[in-house]
Computed example of a mutant assay.
Amino acid sequence: MPAADQNTTPPGFSITLDADASEPRVVVTGELDLLTSPQLQETLGALITDKPSGRVVADLTGVTFFDSSALNVVLQAQRQAAEKAVELELVPSPQVSRVIELTGVAEHLSVSEEPPA
């Protein structure tokens, strides 16, 4: 029997990219964990690399679980964005806000409580 496909997306998880908007945004729903965080890293990394400057919005209002691997991805994306003169703005769900609060990394992130228009 073949090994399980490690790239299988769990039910309820999705990443939607709207790169054509004036402020590109990534919308994530479901659980962001060790299995799904690499997909967010790839999406944000490509978007930040391709954006010469400006702002990128990561809409995490649909995230139901957020672990340390997801937090690491967001912090790495923030560093990458700063190097490219791109503002990365996070719009967190309550679960994401709680992890940011508990870990004390809010000062390193641009967090908005307002969902993107």
Rank of each mutant, 00 (worst) to 15 (best):
P24H: 10
E42Q: 14
L40N: 02
E42I: 08
E31I: 00
G45T: 07
S37M: 05
D20V: 01
T16E: 15
P24R: 06
D20Y: 01
A21G: 10
I15V: 14
E42P: 00
E23N: 05
A21L: 08
T43G: 03
G45E: 07
L35E: 11
T43E: 11
T36R: 01
G45C: 08
T16G: 07
T36P: 04
S37L: 04
T29S: 14
R25F: 09
E31A: 14
I15T: 04
D20W: 00
G45Q: 04
D33F: 08
G30H: 05
E23S: 05
T43V: 14
V28D: 08
G45I: 05
A19M: 05
T43L: 06
S14R: 14
I15M: 08
P24E: 08
P24T: 04
L35W: 09
L34A: 15
Q39G: 10
A21N: 08
E23W: 02
T43S: 12
V26G: 02
E31Y: 01
T29H: 11
A19T: 07
L40V: 09
P24D: 08
I15N: 07
T36C: 07
P24L: 09
E31G: 01
I15Q: 03
T43F: 08
S22W: 01
L17T: 13
L17D: 03
V26N: 02
A21W: 01
S14D: 15
V26I: 15
L17Q: 10
D18E: 13
E31W: 00
V28K: 03
A21T: 10
L32V: 03
A21F: 01
Q39F: 12
E23V: 13
L35N: 12
A19C: 04
E23F: 03
Q41K: 15
A19H: 10
A19D: 15
S37P: 07
S37I: 05
L35H: 15
A46M: 05
A21H: 09
I15Y: 03
T36H: 06
A21D: 13
V27R: 12
V28M: 04
T36K: 04
L34F: 11
Q41N: 11
L34Q: 11
T16L: 13
E31K: 10
A21Y: 06
Q39R: 15
S22A: 14
P24A: 09
R25T: 06
D20M: 02
A46I: 00
D18F: 08
A46P: 00
R25D: 11
T29A: 15
L40M: 07
G45W: 05
L34I: 13
T29Y: 00
L44V: 02
L40H: 06
G45Y: 06
E42R: 15
A46S: 14
A21S: 15
P38M: 07
V28F: 06
V28N: 09
L34T: 12
Q41D: 14
I15S: 02
D20R: 03
L44T: 03
I15P: 02
P24Q: 09
R25C: 11
Q41L: 09
V28S: 07
